[in-house]
């Protein structure tokens, strides 16, 4: 197995163009597990850990651009105030050691339906910045995933960053696990309420072949929320929102949980997250 170790972004893109079979590796928290268990033996690894710009983040107006190599720990510590939903999700990833190593870019690259970062990125309408020697393109997270562990990423492309509007409040993330920490999601839900634009964003994890939005639930809530006076959410509205979120999922029975439990849990999480997010704005 070849081990490619570019030190600049241009070198990384050139290496990926020359070795489209090379598997990019950042924190290694997914890739190394697969290698160690012999589930995958790629012809080459492309180590991105020396490419400094990948670990940087910056602002562009009220937009944030976060390098694909920023680990979860820094998302929590440095961006918790600007991206509260993503920070909540990052806090549920693995152990402290994993959060030191694992990156949002790696999560996107693996494109698991259970990836913890995906629901908050969906809810916040984030964009993924993809780059290759051919140029740069931006893809809405919603269009990024094409199937379980599949994405629109071309063989010569690398994930450079994600771009997202800062939120400060109105975001929530909740995840069900088979225990209370260090677990892969049985299902998860993210919500982003934007009181300025009066938009509602949702993201469902681990309950469909890809992370998905609950678009009908979003539209329902945009119409029903009392945006002007910010009055409390009527219980009937919260319940219907929960029902619509559950209906948007396409879960399966597997070792972590049944489809029926996932739908039920999503309706509960959506209902609760709505109340918390709305209270955060009042």
């Amino acid at each position: 197995m070849d081990f490619l170790q570019p030190s600049t972004w241009d070198e990384a893109l050139a290496a990926k163009a020359a070795h489209p079979d090379a598997v990019p590796i950042a924190g290694g928290t997914d890739v190394m597990v697969e290698l160690n268990f012999d589930r995958r033996r790629p012809p080459a690894l492309l180590d991105l850990s020396r490419v400094a710009p990948l670990t940087e983040w910056g602002t562009d107006g009220d937009m944030l651009r976060v390098g694909a190599g920023v680990p979860y720990r820094r998302i929590i510590e440095e961006l918790g105030g600007r991206l509260p939903g993503l920070a909540m999700a990052a806090r549920t990833v693995g152990s402290p050691q994993i959060r030191n190593r694992g990156t949002v870019g790696g999560n996107l690259g693996s494109a698991s339906p259970a990836g913890d970062a995906h629901p908050p990125l969906l809810a916040a309408r984030a964009e993924v910045e993809l780059a290759s020697v051919r140029g740069v393109r931006r893809v809405p997270v919603e269009s990024f995933f094409t199937g379980p562990k599949r994405s629109v990423l071309a063989p010569d492309e690398l994930i450079a960053a994600f771009r997202v509007r800062t939120a400060r409040a109105g975001e929530q993330f909740a995840k069900i696990g088979t225990r209370n920490a260090m677990v892969i999601a049985v299902c998860s839900f993210a919500l982003a309420l934007d009181p300025v634009r009066r938009t509602v964003g949702t993201g469902i994890g681990s309950a469909a072949p890809t992370p998905v939005r609950a678009t009908a639930a979003e539209a329902f809530l945009v119409a029903e929320l009392d945006w002007d006076s910010r009055g409390a959410v009527p219980p009937g509205v919260a319940a219907e929102f929960g029902r619509l979120v559950a209906a948007a999922a396409a879960p399966i029975d597997d070792v972590r949980g049944t489809a029926a439990y996932r739908r039920h849990a999503l309706s509960v999480l959506a209902r609760r997250a709505l109340v918390w997010a709305w209270e955060g704005l009042r």
Binding site: R91, A174, K175, G177, N180, A181, R272
Partner: peptide, 13 residues
């Protein structure tokens, strides 16, 4: 709380 920092409840249920 049940669920821990996975934030599934703030006391509800």
């Amino acid at each position: 709380l049940p669920g821990g920092v996975a934030n599934t409840t703030h006391g509800e249920g």
